[in-house]
Design a binder for these strands. Structure first.
Lengths: 199, 199
DNA sequence: GAGTAGGTACACAGATCTGTATATGCAAGG
DNA sequence: CCTTGCATATACAGATCTGTGTACCTACTC
């Protein structure tokens, strides 16, 4: 069985399936989920619709894999950068902000997860679960790094939520408000909040 | 001609049209724009599809009016609360945050504008314009109140962008991350940033 | 050399979408 | 009284959507 409902890793996908996933990711992100049909995805992948269904089973499943893949890439980027930030504990807290400039080069349409959330109201939809898990992961990332930096529990919880909101807002308002220097300004705010909490 | 493409005010709508607008607002917000058909909107409004088209002309136009109405209500809420906040200039800056608890009682699915933005990629779509104008308005609101509080231009611009991001993030992560106390924590962060900038 | 994996080509079912056409009912205001 | 505004009922056009059925092709592997 090459394709069951719990698709494992991107590397195990056939070349055709990888192209489908790449094209679908771009289209879902740029045009929206419901606005993109499987016919379009198949055509732009240079593949027949039959192949798409043979590889992914359904549009919903393809959507879930799209979100899981994006989630994995985001976590890898953050964790990877964390590895080369062994010095200042405060800099480690701020890694999700310092990676934003490169992350946003290919994400000028806002946050993939927030956008998908707008189109996936049902909490038990697989995609909805992935989205909420992603935000929980980031909040916990902040919380753990803040704790490592020496803050006590209460302060860490509060600061984690504040940084999460600031981070979301940076991506979203960077796309919608289109104010130059948004990322820089928001990163400064995050730095100020961290410094104040760890003072 | 009762219904041209530049519908004036909500008060001028017929009772049927008002019901349609209310139902459409709820459905667009809770289920998404593309996921809701005009048949559903008409049925839930207790109205025929013909009436919907006679009153609003098209789904796109109804969508635009939905966004404009939400925008107007938000601005009115903020400006209204600003009127009863004549004392501390810093409290005036923070009005968009202090109204959040009541605004979010009926908005647990994130920000209407951010959600709609996810489904309206084209910049020249009327709805897209409304959304971007709304964010610009809020940023300018922050900027003007900060300036009134005595900050100089550079600091006001930076702080306005920071508060805008924090504000967006509060609404979005309140809906997705579902962490209790998000609004309170974020408002504290906003207060800290304002205090630091005006020190 | 037979089987299998991956893909093509193409038609089609069945649902749903936006928008329109046509004919009718009813109540208020001139 | 009778036009006009607002709504109803119902059918339909035409497009698009997800998903399937069927038959064929090709290359690699056992």
């Amino acid at each position: 069985m090459p394709t069951d409902s719990t698709e494992r890793e991107t590397e195990e996908l056939t070349p055709g399936a990888q192209r489908i996933l790449e094209v679908a990711s771009e289209l879902f992100y740029r045009r929206g989920i419901h606005a993109v049909g499987v016919d379009t995805i198949a055509a732009e992948s240079g593949v027949t619709k039959r192949t798409l269904y043979n590889r992914f089973g359904s549009k919903d499943n393809l959507l879930r894999i799209y979100l899981e893949t994006k989630d994995r890439r985001w976590r890898e980027l953050v964790v990877d950068r964390l590895g080369s930030e062994n010095g200042d504990p405060r800099a480690r807290v701020l890694v999700p902000f310092t990676v934003l400039p490169e992350w946003l080069t290919e994400s000028d349409r806002g946050c993939s997860f927030v956008n998908a959330f707008a189109e996936l109201p049902e909490r038990d939809h697989p995609g909805n679960r992935v989205i909420r898990a992603e935000k929980q992961w980031l909040r916990r990332f902040f919380h753990d790094r803040i704790t490592e930096a020496g803050a006590e529990e209460g302060a860490a919880s509060t600061l984690a939520v504040q940084l999460l909101a600031l981070h979301e807002g940076a991506i979203v308002s960077n796309a919608i408000a289109e104010v130059p220097g948004t990322v820089r300004a928001v990163t400064e705010a995050a730095t100020a909040l961290v410094d104040a909490a760890l003072a």
